[in-house]
C-alpha cells in the first residue's frame, strides 16, 4: 500500500554523498523517530499503526545503512543501478587477492601463536587501516563518477569487512 519512494538520504534529509556527518545523522533520525514511532500511533487506528511500522522500519533500515561505511557505499552504487550484493563479476586485482589469502593464513595460525591476543590485535589494526584507506578511495572514486573503480573498491571492502567478522569470531572463541 505504502510507497516509500524516497531514497534513504532524502528521507532522512541528508545530501546524497559518501561523506556523512554521523552526529547529524543521529540527530535527524531521532527527530524522525519521534514523529514516526508506532508508540505515537498506539491509540489510533490499525491503518495508522501499520503505516508507522512501515515508515519506522524504513527509517531504521536507512539509519543502519547510512551509518555503516560499507552499506552506505553499496547503497550509493545501488542508486546508480549497480547491485554489489548479487553481482560478483567485478574483476579484482590479483595482487589484492594474494594479499587476502596471506591475511587469512595469518588468521588461521593465530591460535597456535605464543601470544594470540597480541597477534590478533595487530592483525585487526592492519585490516582496519586498509579499510580506512579503501573508504577514502571509494569517496574519491564516487565523487569522480568512476563507478567501475568504485565497484571494485566496494568489493575489496566486502572482503575486508568479512575478515573483521572472522577476527572477532576468533576472539570470541579464544575467550572461550
Amino acid at each position: 500500500m505504502m510507497d516509500i519512494s524516497k531514497n534513504f538520504f532524502e528521507f532522512i534529509g541528508l545530501p546524497v554523498s559518501f561523506d556523512i556527518d554521523q552526529s547529524e545523522l543521529a540527530d535527524r533520525s531521532r527527530e524522525l523517530q519521534k514523529k514516526l514511532h508506532p508508540d505515537r500511533y498506539a491509540h489510533l487506528s490499525d491503518r495508522e499503526q501499520r503505516m508507522s511500522v512501515q515508515y519506522m522500519s524504513f527509517l531504521n533500515e536507512g539509519v543502519a545503512t547510512l551509518r555503516s561505511p560499507l552499506l552506505r557505499a553499496q547503497y550509493l552504487l545501488l542508486l546508480q543501478g549497480i547491485d554489489t550484493e548479487s553481482e560478483s563479476s567485478t574483476p579484482i586485482a590479483p595482487m589484492f587477492l594474494m594479499q587476502q589469502m596471506e591475511l587469512r593464513e595469518r588468521l588461521e595460525e593465530i591460535p597456535d601463536q605464543d601470544d594470540p591476543y597480541a597477534e590478533l590485535e595487530d592483525l585487526l589494526a592492519e585490516v582496519e587501516g586498509m579499510l580506512k584507506a579503501l573508504r577514502e578511495q571509494f569517496a574519491q572514486d564516487y565523487q569522480e563518477g568512476a563507478l567501475t573503480a568504485a565497484t571494485e573498491t566496494v568489493r575489496k571492502m566486502q572482503f575486508l569487512e568479512k575478515l573483521v567478522v572472522e577476527i572477532e569470531r576468533l576472539e570470541d572463541r579464544l575467550d572461550g
Binding site: D27, R28, E31, L32, K34, R47
Partner: peptide, 17 residues
C-alpha cells in the same frame, strides 16, 4: 490522506533542522 500526513510530519521534522 494518511500517507500525506506521514510525509508531512517527516517534512516538518526535517524542517526543524
Amino acid at each position: 490522506y494518511a500517507s500525506r500526513r506521514m510525509d508531512h510530519s517527516i517534512q516538518k521534522a526535517l524542517q526543524g533542522h
